[in-house]
Design a protein around this nucleic acid. Structure first.
Lengths: 66, 66
DNA sequence: CGAATGTGTCAAACATGTTTTACATATTTA
DNA sequence: TAAATATGTAAAACATGTTTGACACATTCG
């Protein structure tokens, strides 16, 4: 699963730590997701999308196409 | 997290077992998700949405609004 | 330069999602 | 009515996601 978090986050000029705080998760979690270490939970995916003013369907590109 | 899986699945007249097979997970997984025992992984959420011809953002209603 | 901020990473512990096997009960259909 | 199909549920094992604390390195800013 690929995602567009980093670009959008940098567009909004907020740090991984700030996004983590907005989503109420640790900074390591955001970092791991941006670097494709693992996928976020569905709830966290919604939180990230919301805080980056977009939708899950736009932010994430599932394996196997959608 | 609430979801509209059951209605959509019944609209398409497929069983939990059939949807499970299409999504390549066990029937118990689909059953647990329909009955809000836990949320699917992000990848599985995409697979379910795809097989029900809809989007994650339409299918799932995250806790805390979106 | 030195301090502060941002990013990458690691390990251990803990939380959540998924499979398998199994059984009970209901609903449909031959 | 009997057989087949569909659903709910449970426990154990296993896989994945998340936290905490820690450290390294780079970049920015006073």
């Amino acid at each position: 699963m690929h995602n567009h978090i980093r670009v959008l986050r940098e567009d909004k000029k907020i740090s991984q730590g700030k996004l983590a705080e907005l989503c109420r998760v640790s900074r390591q979690t955001i970092n791991a997701i941006e670097n494709n270490k693992y996928d976020p939970s569905l709830q966290l995916a919604f939180d990230i999308a919301k805080n980056l003013d977009t939708t899950i369907d736009w932010l994430f590109l599932p394996k196997g196409g959608n």
